[in-house]
Amino acid sequence: MLIKIEKASKPEGWNVWMNAWCVEFRSYAEALAFVIRLEGRINAPHPLPISTARLLLEQA
C-alpha cells in the first residue's frame, strides 16, 4: 500500500493518501500520528488462523 502525506489545498490542512483513498487532517502532527499508527498495524505480525479440526487430528 502506498501511503503519503501531502499539503491540502485548503489552509492548515493535510491529506494522507492510501493508494487512491484520501483522509483529511487539520495538522501535520495529526496526519503523521495516523501514518505511524497505520504503518505499525500493517507491519505487525498477523498469525494465520488454525483450524480446530486440524488441531484435533494432529493430537490424535
Rank of each mutant, 00 (worst) to 15 (best):
L48C: 02
R37L: 08
S51H: 03
L55I: 08
H46A: 11
L57P: 00
R37T: 10
L32C: 06
E39R: 11
W17E: 10
F25L: 04
A20S: 11
V35A: 02
E12R: 13
P49M: 14
A44E: 14
G40R: 10
I3K: 00
V35H: 01
L48H: 02
W21K: 14
P45C: 03
A60K: 13
E6I: 13
R37V: 04
P11W: 03
R54L: 15
A31D: 06
E30K: 09
I50S: 01
P47Q: 05
V23I: 12
E30S: 08
Y28V: 02
K7L: 09
S9C: 03
E24Y: 12
A8Q: 07
V16L: 02
E30A: 11
R41S: 04
E6S: 12
G13H: 14
A8T: 08
W14F: 13
M1N: 06
I50F: 08
Q59T: 13
A8H: 12
V23G: 02
L55C: 06
R54M: 12
P47M: 00
I36H: 10
P47V: 03
A31V: 05
P45L: 11
C22S: 03
S27R: 07
E24W: 13
E12T: 08
L57D: 12
N43H: 08
L56W: 09
V16A: 01
V35G: 02
G40Q: 05
V23Y: 11
P47D: 04
W17G: 05
G13T: 15
W21S: 15
M1C: 05
A8N: 12
L38T: 06
S51A: 02
A20H: 12
A33P: 00
Y28F: 15
R54P: 02
G40M: 05
E39N: 01
A53P: 00
I5H: 00
N15C: 05
I36R: 14
G40N: 15
E30F: 03
Q59W: 06
Q59E: 15
K10S: 11
Q59S: 10
S9N: 14
N15D: 07
E39L: 11
